[in-house]
Design a binder for these strands. Structure first.
Lengths: 254, 254
DNA sequence: GAATTCATCTGGAGA
DNA sequence: TCTCCAGTTGAATTC
């Protein structure tokens, strides 16, 4: 990591060399593309990564003020002695301009290693656990298809209950609202054209009142899933994959 | 902006002083909370802002690898001589730990000005244009309510057409899929309990095939909106508010 | 605090 | 490429 001169030429060189660049300055931003936005002069952190991603942060908040993910062009130039960054995206056509009234400093870093990233406890993992342990959903149900395509979308789990009725399961890893219920209804509706008597079951750790109402009104079911129990079942798998202790996850769940 | 020693004590001091802190290092991350994730050792950019927001970026990509928006606790300590950052969120309870095998440098900056941020061309702007110019939607329609609350949600525009029928308008600023159509249907369905003969119209710059099908099947309508025309109408207001030329926006739309 | 919806949503998978 | 959907979605707004 090194401090570099905050001049357009030097910064363009660093960008060209695929270094990570961080600029701290008193800047304003202009964005035009799918939307349009601008920010007034104020302290900003500008990050330009190897792949041309540009991110502009203000002094507070988790979200960037402006960004540009897939740039086809990133360059600095000078306007009236002030540093200006222009970042252009190709598709969709979008332009981000950052004008710096002053700069506090510029840092460049040649990245060495990236390292993998792994996410757990996604909806697809919950789906796989339930697929392998259908008794956790209800007694006697048999899962016959996973991610069954319908038009449009995918049915998370598809199976037959102990009385031989077809069941469609829609899984949510967070509390389910009416939108999730509508999604399930869409799938069930499509199947009912060809298969009468289809059951639709929404599986989630919780449900909003309006979700419950919608489900009842449309002859669908809500079944709460116990995330803690799911992970008790699968703590070994979680540990193996993540090298994480599953204990703290369980603490959170409880 | 100043380079600071990458020691836990020094970094804790900077965090305590509400400085913006940037750490570049060879780090791994662990996150546990609503989900769980980990990343292997590799180059990371850690940003800690005034308000305690923590953001961890890898060498590529627009999205952070890990983050923590509303921390109740952020602190550095040392483990076997290595710098470790722990950031805890209160509700929901989530923990992020970043371990640095090595550090490339630490930067601290006392922010001076934040600068206001304005955003336009959001869905609400489109809604306001159409409210003020209902002729752009259809001949003779009169808008009587904006953001009319229903249970659950809000009807973007609510009015009466030239034949006296109640119309519900749902606006999307991007191409509308079946989900948007279902959303509209939900509103219409609720109104039909008390008002028969309600029209439902989806306004968007485009529609997916399945959205069109759903609308037709349920007696609803799709009306394309011309973003370019909307901008023409609105350019004066935009100019006044933002001090931007609206020309380039129009170029993009065309 | 809970619920709902928008977002320059992003990113990924599948056809 | 389009379409659909998950996301540690976040953030604003409303009740």
């Amino acid at each position: 990591m090194k401090l570099v001169e905050c001049s357009p030429d030097r910064l363009n060189l660093e960008v060209h060399n695929k270094s990570i660049l961080i600029v701290l300055g008193d800047c304003m931003t202009l964005y035009e593309g799918r939307g349009a936005a601008h920010s007034e002069y104020g302290d900003k952190i500008i990050i330009i990564k190897q792949d041309g991603s540009v991110i502009v942060h203000g002094p507070t908040g988790f979200k960037p003020l402006n960004w540009q993910p897939d740039t086809i062009h990133v360059s600095f130039h000078s306007e009236e002695g002030h540093l200006v960054l222009k970042a252009v995206r190709g598709k969709p056509r979008e332009t981000l301009v950052v004008k710096c009234r002053g700069t506090y400093g510029c840092i460049s870093h040649e990245p060495r290693s990236s390292g993998g990233f792994y996410m757990y406890f996604s909806e697809s993992e919950i789906r796989d656990i339930l697929r392998d342990n259908p008794w956790m959903i209800e007694d006697g149900v048999r899962i016959t298809e996973v991610e069954k395509p319908v038009q449009p979308g995918f049915i998370d789990l598809y199976g037959v209950d102990k009385e031989g009725r077809i069941v469609v399961f829609e899984i949510k890893r967070v509390k389910a609202g009416e939108e999730a219920a509508r999604q399930l209804y869409g799938y069930v509706e499509k199947l009912r054209k060809s298969i009468p008597n289809v059951r639709g079951v929404l599986l989630a750790p919780g449900f909003t009142e309006s979700a419950i109402e919608f489900l009842q009104k449309n002859g669908l079911e809500a079944k709460p899933i116990d995330l803690k129990k799911l992970y008790e079942m699968y703590s070994e798998r979680v540990k193996r994959k993540a090298g994480l202790s599953s204990r703290s996850l369980l603490d959170y769940m409880g």
